[in-house]
Design a protein around this nucleic acid. Structure first.
Lengths: 185, 185
DNA sequence: GCGGCCATGTAACCTGTTACATGATTCT
DNA sequence: AGAATCATGTAACAGGTTACATGGCCGC
């Protein structure tokens, strides 16, 4: 399992509460690892029990108090160990591909709207990624030391961007195929 | 959930046993939806109880008897209904991206081997997909009616091919980044 | 007053993974 | 003799999803 490790990475980048982690899993990290707040609270509690993270109660004004988590030495070790062991092939789950093959036994044209909907979400995400790239990764690299973290975050973001571009191209191919099938009958 | 639906599509393409389905989930269908045989037997039993599939005991010589499943009318209806409802955004799980961001807090160069390993599996898969495309989707379309099923299977395969190409490009980018970080210190 | 954000959780349930179990046949 | 393939399953556990629950503050 790797949710624990994703949380460790996020907390190393910046300590925060379960709620804040949940928000991050809807944004940056969520682009390659999804998790709900229930899942996060559950795992965080286990990690606390295992001594992977430290907790600090932070009283707040005007809003509920929060528990700020940060990575403990044991967590560092666990992460390092995980980084050094090979990870298997990722399991894939593409509803849309199943639907496209299933459409052969139903009305293929009925899928056009669904595919267009997906196309829209990928367009939006691409725009969002590109905005993030412009915001965080343009300008001079600075005269200081080359920031490894920054470079690595950037290359992951580039992966997201390429993924969205690939998907848009493929979805156009899918739409063209569906339209061809529609006109041929 | 869509494992049920993936099974329905597979059985519509060709009826078969649980074992045969498990094999298909290692090949063609497995490219966009993974499942183990245990999972398949469990779900198949539920689908049988729900009247989505019919079973036929097939005695065999020289090998164990098998149960051949095929889609029942209720299953057809269920599939059709699923095809017409929108599906949410797919949940993503990319260990490698987590590891890359995590590498900022460890030794980034240690990841090089892991990334190269992934690169190799993607190279292999691409070759495999391309071989499948040559085998199944070359030659004249034939003078007969345009086969919707064939066209749709092909467009899904093209998606797989584009995905692998994108991944190879990105992994090269990742490797270049890791090497750059390694040389700068 | 209503909806949304911040913040934390519990409980039930459904899915997915790993390990174990059996047994005949075919190939090397 | 040993390994691989065909064929079906059970059991235990880990991980993920959905629904429910609470409660103050802020803006419209």
């Amino acid at each position: 399992m790797a949710l624990e490790h994703a949380i460790l990475v996020s907390l190393l980048e910046k300590p925060g509460s379960g709620y804040e982690l949940a928000r991050r899993f809807e944004r940056s990290i969520g682009y390659f690892w999804t998790a709900t707040h229930q899942q996060i609270y559950r795992v965080l509690k286990r990690m606390e029990g295992d001594g992977w993270v430290d907790v600090r109660e932070v009283p707040q004004e005007g809003r509920p108090d929060k528990k700020e988590y940060s990575v403990a030495p044991l967590g560092q070790t666990a992460l390092s160990q995980w980084l050094h062991e090979p990870s298997g092939p990722e399991s894939v789950r593409h509803d849309l591909a199943v639907k496209i093959r299933g459409a052969a036994f139903d009305d293929p044209t009925a899928l056009i709207h669904e595919v267009e909907r997906h196309r829209q979400t990928h367009t939006d995400r691409l725009a969002h990624y590109l905005a993030g790239e412009r915001r965080d990764f343009t300008g001079p690299e600075g005269p200081g030391p080359p920031d490894a973290g920054r470079e690595l975050q950037h290359v992951v973001l580039r992966g997201g961007i390429e993924y969205e571009r690939m998907m848009l191209g493929w979805l156009d191919d899918v739409l063209a195929t569906l339209h061809r099938l529609a006109s041929k009958h």
